[in-house]
Each structure stands twice: as C-alpha cells, then as structure tokens.
Amino acid sequence: MNEAMRKPVSNREAVGRKSMVQELADLTTVVLAPMDDQTTLLLRELQRYRMRVQQVWPMPTTVPGEADVVFCEYCPDLARRLPWIPGDARSALVVIVPASEPIQAESLSHATPNAVLPRPFTPNAVLSSLVLARSQFGYERRLRSKIEKLDENLRSMRTVERAKAILMATRQMPETEAYSFIRRQAMDRRVSASAVAAAIVDSFELLGYDPQH
C-alpha cells in the first residue's frame, strides 16, 4: 500500500489536480441513440457531470466527429459510419450494446471502441464507461505521440552526433564538453538541442568544413 492510495479522495487541493469527475465538466459529447427512458437516464447522468450533451437520432450515415466523447448505439456497420480511419480516431468512443439482441464480435472490434455501455443503463455503468473511454483514448493518444517523438529523436540524434564531431575537431573540445556546449546553447536560445545541432552542421557545411577530413 503506497502513500498515494491512502490519500483521502476528497482532498483534491493537496493532490493539486482536478478529480476525474471534475475533468468531465464542459467536455462535449454526442449521444447517438433513440430517445427513450434509458437514453433519458444517460443524458441526465452526463448533464450531472456538467458535460455539454447533444442527442442525435436516427443514426446518421456519418457519425459526427468533433465531440470529445461519442456514445453510439451498436450497429453491424458502425465502423463504416465512423468519420475517421481506425488508428486515427478523433473522439473517445463508447458503444452502446443491446441487452439481448445478439451482436457480432467483429463489428464491435472493427469500430475500435474505447469502452462499451450495455443496456439497461445504470448511473454506475455510465460513469464507468465514461472514465474508461476517456482514459483509454488518452493513453492511446499519448503512446502514439510518444512513438512520433521517438522517431524524431532517432533522427535528431544523428544530427547531434555530427555537430559534436564538428565541435570536437574545430574547437578541440572533449566529447562531454561538446555535448554540454550544445545543451547550453539550446537552453540559452530556448530551442531544442537538435535545432542547435542542425544549425552547427548547416553553418559548417556553408563554410565548406568537412568533419571527416
């Protein structure tokens, strides 16, 4: 049991961040479901979290793509109605699953939902699906951006290596000093180390300097 887990949930000030429920306020959500008692409950719960809710029915050919969270009734061709390609979703997606009508596993999987909400709805089930969808969607997006940054870093490492070699040769700097020179310049100029490295490499190229000779 670590410290964090013992902290009282109500003491948000001490934690220094919004609670999960507070984070829901002002998020936009679209509910694609026919208006009935169940949907009324769902909308009421979402409004209780101060989310901005829009209900749409009948099911449009293309699901609106601008909301933070989309609650959408299951249908076999749901994936085709989504406005994005898989792997590039713009909203967290909760698929509403019927109580007894059979569904197809492939259709559900192809829609790549972040959570499901089975009928009949309960307040706990609504909150659970919301929390799960938001956290899974956010996590996936963070992983994707991490991979993009890793790719970028891989490229810039080569530039930094070349800039380091230039500094070592022209300024007789030892390796560690060359690295810290690049880092210091980056901090002073408030740009990335790779931008500084690229500037060094470019300017020496302009002057016709060749680190290998």
């Binding site: 390609i85 898989p86 792997g87 590039d88 192809h110 790549t112 790719d151 891989l154 490229r155």
Partner: peptide, 24 residues
C-alpha cells in the same frame, strides 16, 4: 503512412514493395 494507422490498429499486415527513406 496513410495505411499504417489502419493496419496497426486492426492488426493487419501491409506488404510494401517500394524503396523508401528508411527510419521505420
């Protein structure tokens, strides 16, 4: 790069028969 997110998310396999710039 347009096909990549689709095959990665749905776990497909793209066979790419073209020279390219590497770093992937």
């Amino acid at each position: 790069k347009a096909v990549l997110p689709v095959v990665e998310r749905l776990n497909g396999l793209l066979w790419y028969p073209t020279l390219y710039e590497g770093f992937e």
